[in-house]
Design a protein around this nucleic acid. Sequence first.
DNA 1: TTGACTACCATAAAATCCCATGTTATCCCA
DNA 2: TGGGATAACATGGGATTTTATGGTAGTCAA
Lengths: 148, 148
Amino acid sequence: MFLSTSHNKIDLKCRVSIPASFRMNLERLKEPLILFKSLQFPCIEGTTLTRMQRYINAIDELDALSDDAFLLRMMMADSFEIKFDINGRVVIPDILMSFASLTNKAVFMGIGESFYIWSPSEYENQYNKSQKILNEKGPPKLILKKNE
Amino acid sequence: MFLSTSHNKIDLKCRVSIPASFRMNLERLKEPLILFKSLQFPCIEGTTLTRMQRYINAIDELDALSDDAFLLRMMMADSFEIKFDINGRVVIPDILMSFASLTNKAVFMGIGESFYIWSPSEYENQYNKSQKILNEKGPPKLILKKNE
DNA sequence: TTGACTACCATAAAATCCCATGTTATCCCA
DNA sequence: TGGGATAACATGGGATTTTATGGTAGTCAA
């Protein structure tokens, strides 16, 4: 599971350390890391290859001419399998750097099955937005299921 | 798995480098590369021989005398098994060059089981189209599903 | 013999690997 | 519980390898 938030530096080669806990999660699962453009936010989403594989398999199940299939294909095109260097760093592809408006700092935000990489300013925007919703509408109703 | 997008140059001999990650995918699978006319778009589709076989089998499922079967056979007739040179380049057949309106640049777009080769301007069209659909209709429903 | 195709060589640019270092977190014992 | 020792982590920089791409020589067929 990807949990917690941390701020890391992006160097001139677009390298950034993935938080150790995220790396350990991937190692434990023996999963390669995939980075891709979030479909909902101006940020990068990180997840496992297996999870990405499920999207790919789903394409064949859909009507090949449908909008959904089209969007999923475009999503694959903006996905990258990422390798770690010996110190646990990755290089963020240019396409993703500019999509998420990243320059020299990245905010890593674990959200369970995957994680987001935000630019600090966008992260702040989203954070403020969430606080505002919380103040106006109160906490969301949650129904917790037991683990099977 | 074919993922990510990259822009490569096509030289005067119609040679072009296949992105290294795509080549490695083919090598890992020990699969030859097949290039053919996309059935949906004005672009070239690249895939493995095994997957091409599945397309062909699908044609056999259709009414052999139908217009659909006829069209599919005509498209499949312009399929080529492609060899790499020592540097990972291929020669794009003339028929495919003109079908996809390729001149001196190619955009390689990985979509999981296969990949597309676009002319830069057509690629841009498709990308813009996808952004428009995304804005109007939101992300594909599938994305919102939880892993089991 | 010419033209097209193929195989191979050369090179610049880019990506990757790995060592070094300061900083933070963790451990362990007094 | 405090504080020093130790390990883990984040980050900088340089060496090395890979990649993309231009070019040339050899081969085969018309």
